[in-house]
């Protein structure tokens, strides 16, 4: 996945998490310097955000 696609997915994740009650300002901070992270760091961030989204969505059910 190239950086553009990653940023799109990141923004979608952020939007979803914000709609679930997460702090937009904090997540925007990560979005701001996402491009400067290396691949491993980006994957860790994605993994972290995806898991949080899954956990929060389970609560809704």
């Amino acid at each position: 996945m190239d950086i553009l696609q990653q940023k799109i997915e990141l923004q979608e994740l952020i939007n979803d998490l914000v709609s679930l009650g997460e702090d937009k300002e904090e997540l925007d901070f990560w979005s701001d310097f996402f491009e400067t992270l290396d691949d491993e760091e980006r994957q860790k961030l994605f993994s972290n955000l995806r898991k949080e989204k899954e956990d929060l969505e389970k609560l809704k059910k």
């Binding site: 679930l20 009650g21 955000l49 949080e52 956990d55 929060l56």
Partner: peptide, 14 residues
Amino acid sequence: PEKKKIMEAAREER
């Protein structure tokens, strides 16, 4: 509180 617990764990990792 449940949400907060999840968020705190995620934030700690970040």
